[in-house]
Structure formats: C-alpha cells, structure tokens
Design a protein around this nucleic acid. Structure first.
Lengths: 198, 198
DNA sequence: GTCTATATCGGGATAGAC
DNA sequence: GTCTATCCCGATATAGAC
C-alpha cells in the first residue's frame, strides 16, 4: 500500500489529513513538514508547488475511495445492504465529521470559492460515490430513477455532515440515519416505477 | 437601513459578499478596500483587526436573517406555507448557491477548520432558522417532534446546497424540492404523533 | 535525498501627514 | 476621515552545500 513507506507518500498522507482538518489554503508547508518530520527545503525535492501536493492528495483520495467501494462490493452481496453501509459512514466517521465536516464536500466547496483548477478532480470523488450508488439501485431493478436515488442519498450525507459539524449533535445524526433507512425500505418495497408511468 | 450609507457599512457589505464568494481567509484587506473604493490605511480607522470585520459581518447576517424571517412571519399566515418559503430558498438563490454554496453552512465549516473563536456566532445564524422552523411546526400542532422536523428541513437545505455547488444541476435541486414538499405534505396529513406513542 | 540559508512576495497592521 | 508610506511577519519557493 502507498501509505507508510517513502517520504513522498508520507507527505501526501500528512497533507491529506491537514487539508481535511484545517482546510487547503490554511495549511502551510511548515505544518506539513513538521507533521512528517522533514525540513521545508526537502519538500521541494518531491513536489514543485502546493497545487501539486493538492493534486496528489486528491488522487490518493480517489484511489482509496475506489478501494473502499470495491471492498464493500466484494464483502456484501445485497445491493440494499451496500447502500446502508454508505449511509452508515456518517456514524462510523461521526467524530471526524463533527469536527471537520465531510472531506469531500468541504474540499469541493473550498476549491469552488478559490476558483481552483483542481476543483473538477475533487468533484470526481463525489462522482465515484454517485456512480457506485446508482449501480446498486440499478441492481435492485431501478433504471432511470437510479441516479436520482443515488443523488438523494448523497444529499442526505452532505446535509447530515454539515449540521453535525455545526451543532455537534449525535442524536440528530442517528435520527436522520433512521429516517433514511425507513425511506429506503419503503422505496425498495414499492419497487421501480412501471414504464407506463414515466 | 444600515446598508448603503457610511463607509463602515460599505466595508461590512463588501466583506459580507467577498467572504461568501471567496471565503473568509482568502479575502484580503486589499480586495475589500478595492471593492469599496478606499485605501487600506483608512480601513483601520473603522476596524482594528480582520476578526473585527468578521464579527461585524456575522452580526449583519444575523440581523438580516431575523428581518427576513419576520417578513415571512408577517406576509404568510399559514405555517406550512412559511416552511415551503424556506425550502424554496435553494431555488430562489439557486445561482449563488451553485457558485458558492450556502453562506451559513460554508462559513461555519470554514471557521470550524480554522478553530476560530467566532464560530459560535456563525452557528447562531443556523439557530435562527432552526428555531423559526421549529416554531412553525409547533403552530401546526407538533410538540416534541417540532425540533426534529426543523433539523430535517435544515439538513435538506445543506445537502442540496453542497451538491448543487458540486454538480451545478438545477434539475437535481428541483427534484429534491419536490421530494421534500411531498414528504412535508404527508407529514402534515399524518399529524403529530399521539402522546401514547412516545 | 536531505539539509541550511536565503530570496521574494503578499498579507495584516501601524504611524503620521493632510 | 482619508490618505501615503512603512513595518513586520509568515508563506511559497529557490540555491546550493552535504
């Protein structure tokens, strides 16, 4: 795995964490260098510019997201249960989300405000989740509605993450998860809309 | 109104807009000064520090939010219709949200990452909406559920705003608004849970 | 590959004239 | 109240020794 060995990988890992906790722009080279335990000068041997590090961080996030979704795909055969696994992230990662929000949503928004060229790559992480969720609904028999349902699940996660970060209320998160599970069950019980109704 | 006249008010207005569009930390004094048309030096006659401007911006947002909610309270007698008015913000302000996200959610998250002392005041804007929405549901006969329903509406708005900013998809926004309206109608038709069921 | 030293720039903040 | 000039610091980035 490209995580522990190699100075370059260590830099990317530290930057990945710091960009999440402090934001991209607010994170200085000094902070990253200190976290890794190297000097600032050594830094530029591995990356020419700060944007290069951001690019590497986003690629790592894309890669680890693909790996996680592949794991879920392998470990769970029921698509509905896979969707529930995704929904559960807001509880599994509840502590980090309370402190820093969703890593995907907060980075894409920061890059949007900075009008940063890397924004589309950050949105690509969202696309991974969106496509994966849509595939689950397609496996459950939905067709044209699948993407709409996927986006609704994504919106749920972003809304919960933002308010969890603002209010630090675990009971709110649990209530919303329960509510979405109920909605999902009803949606699955009703099944896809017949073609004649579209 | 404290909006157009007075250099101080102009500074706050420009900062308010720029903090929204570019983020708080990324907005420089030079940018604000240029937007207002004054020199950087003059700046410090009105505000001692950048955090002071942030404080003033947040107070203005609190004030304008209170005014907006009071208007809605006055202009619309049906609490359900008032809630729908709030839900409609994601369409009314759709263009700005696509470009910059929700002003409340994005600022609170940025301040959380900066570990900024003004974060609680920024969250207070969320609290205004939360309390106002809860009051509407209370007027509709809900009691203990009112706050839960209010938070669900807030979560909706944040989820839609974040994904609207990421994907720039108006049709997604409209679908989610329609979905929430349906949910709201069903919720109101069912009425509050009887006390015996709690 | 890693370090120290340094260049360069932009940001917040101050002093003082008008 | 508004301006110009300036200070100070932190941040990105470079040069070059080891």
């Amino acid at each position: 795995m490209a995580g522990s060995t190699g100075t370059r990988a260590q830099i990317v890992d530290a930057a990945n964490r710091l960009f999440y906790e402090q934001g991209f722009e607010h994170t200085s080279f000094a902070a990253i260098a200190q976290a890794v335990g190297i000097s600032r000068g050594n830094f530029y041997h591995h990356f020419k510019t700060k944007d290069d590090i951001l690019g590497a961080v986003i690629e790592v996030r894309l890669q680890s997201t693909r790996a996680m979704l592949a794991d879920w795909q392998r470990d769970e055969s029921d698509p509905a249960e896979r969707v529930r696994r995704f929904v559960g992230i807001v509880i599994t990662n509840g502590a980090d989300i309370q402190d820093f929000g969703c890593p995907v949503g907060t980075l894409t928004n920061e890059l949007a405000k900075l009008d940063h060229p890397a924004r589309p790559r950050a949105v690509a992480v969202f696309d991974l989740f969106r496509t994966w969720l849509r595939t689950q609904f397609e496996e459950l028999g939905f067709s044209v509605e699948a993407d709409d349902l996927a986006m609704h699940i994504l919106a749920f996660s972003q809304g919960v993450a933002t308010l969890s970060n603002a209010f630090h209320d675990e009971r709110f998160v649990q209530r919303e998860v329960d509510r979405l599970h109920t909605w999902l069950d009803e949606r699955l019980a009703a099944g896809p809309a017949p073609r004649s109704m579209r």
